[in-house]
Amino acid sequence: MPAQRGREESVAREGPETTPAIVVEGLSKTFGKGESAVVAVDDVSFTVDRGSVVGLLGPNGAGKTTIIKSILGMVLPDAGTVRIDGIDVHADPRAAYRHVDAMLEGARNDYWRLTVRENLRYFATISGVKPDAVADRHERLLAQLDLAEEADTPVRELSRGMKQKVSLASVLATDADVVFLDEPTLGLDVESSRTLRRELRRIVAERNLTVVVSSHDMDVIEDVCDRVIIVGEGRIVADDTVANLLAGFDTQGYRVVSRDIDERTVGAVERAFDRVTVERDGDRTELSVETDSSGFYRLAGILERGGVTLDSVDTIEPDLEEVFLRVTGSVDDA
């Protein structure tokens, strides 16, 4: 039984009941040397409580995948430590891999020539658990992900959405209680993505899994995650719950649409407010102004003086995408 003893010792030292599922401290990684060196991960530290779902957000090249691969030991970091269930992943990887699995980069991570069920059994064994011991779980997973009817079908014969579900199922088929999902809905249509998110949420709650999700899909992050870590240029630039992040950027705004706003009125609005966005489509002009309710009266006054007839007025609520763009934009500007 490989690595079992090492894990027991590690957990005994750390005290499993009180330890966060994931502890990352001072993780750093630079690729290359000298002038061509690229800092991919820069002193990243965070913890993830057991049973929580954390989203990892960041623009392309921000270092999300390198962070995940460094945590999992696939990339050797220059500095830092990672503990999963109290086990030092880099010092005792074999013990840690009994507790963690990953679906990386939303790609296929199973064998297309094997059937769905054969994949679940194979990868359960590879991850160190006897497939017969988790056969019941496999049947439940197949049912939860609507794969029961395709259980004995080779994966290559399934649709893209089904294949993605099989990838997820083969990761959840193991004994891992910590799971990393990199772009789990990549390439899925809206309906398939929604189904996968719903089932993922249900399975996570049911099995008390600890999950780190990396995704460009804000719906995935908002739907599934308790907390969001935003990464920019290899550093953590924000780390909070979705609600707190939205509250932190709760700058009220108003969107005005009209067909007779002239340049002089637009200029007056731009001079009166710091954040104004103007979009024109033919004779239709859309003015988005970031301001509070008192500012709205000033805006209304300017428009009235300009003789503007309003087609519509809406309030603008910040969403996670806007928060993400603001946060990562401020990194780019720095």
Binding site: A102, A107, Y111, I126
Partner: peptide
């Protein structure tokens, strides 16, 4: 096939 990492992450 994208399965190499899973054979790396094994006890």
């Amino acid at each position: 096939w994208g399965t190499l990492e899973r054979h790396f992450m094994t006890p």
